[in-house]
């Protein structure tokens, strides 16, 4: 989605404001929002792809006005409505128990899939590739600044589910994801430094041979 969240390369946001000795949370409701966001996906089928899709659906003006955890609140409420939790039409459970939390954190949600579950890799390290010119109105992880730009496959990271499909609720589309190297000159033109570079991890179908 070509939304306000896709910020790479934009101008006009001003200086980076840093807080000295910043605490992890700035209000108690932020604590509760973090805890809710971590606890719910153990019970209700909500993934980071779904949460990102909902955050990205927030219109530009409120997106920029909202704090980070306020966006999480918007996204979570919207997903719980979609899943039928808000009106009680769907039942899930049981809740993750407090004594299960350390193991839940330590286990995480590993996302890499066995290679055989994905379609064959179309690219190899060293190969020149171009970011596709695509503008889906749903969630994608191909930032605008890399579309139409040429880079080099550096690493094949293995097979991961395509976020675009997961976020849209389509059948999984597991495929290879690669670290792609771009020069800053390719991305931003001659005013960029000649020796600086960028790495971006891109799924197979975001790329075409160059």
């Amino acid at each position: 989605m070509d939304g306000i969240h896709d910020m790479g390369g934009m101008h006009g946001f001003g200086p980076i404001e840093r807080e000295k000795d910043e605490p992890p949370f700035h209000a108690d409701w932020e604590r509760r929002m973090l805890g809710i966001s971590l606890a719910v996906p153990f019970v209700v089928p909500i993934t980071d792809d779904h949460l990102r899709r909902e955050v990205e659906r927030i219109a530009p003006e409120p997106y920029l006005r909202m704090s980070y955890y306020e966006r999480w609140l918007e996204a979570m409420v919207s997903l719980l409505e979609e899943r039928g939790v808000a009106d009680g039409s769907a039942a899930f459970g049981p809740a993750v128990a407090a004594d299960a939390v350390p193991a839940a954190i330590a286990g995480g949600f590993p996302l890499r899939l066995p290679d055989k579950e994905g379609r064959a890799a179309r690219f190899k390290p060293g190969q020149r590739v171009r970011g596709r010119n695509m503008h889906p109105d749903g969630h994608t992880r191909l930032p605008r600044y890399a579309r139409g730009r040429v880079g080099t496959i550096e690493t094949d990271l293995g097979v991961f589910g395509l976020p675009d499909a997961n976020a849209a609720g389509r059948a999984p589309e597991p495929q290879h994801c690669y670290t792609v190297a771009f020069t800053l000159r390719e991305l931003w033109g001659d005013s960029a430094s000649a020796i600086d570079t960028l790495r971006l991890d891109l799924w197979d179908e975001y790329l075409e041979p160059a």
């Binding site: 509760r32 973090l34 805890g35 606890a39 899930f92 809740a95 128990a97 407090a98 939390v101 954190i105």
Partner: peptide, 10 residues
């Protein structure tokens, strides 16, 4: 769906 003590733990 959520245990308050689990939120505290996270």
């Amino acid at each position: 769906l959520v245990d308050r003590a689990a939120i505290d733990a996270f």
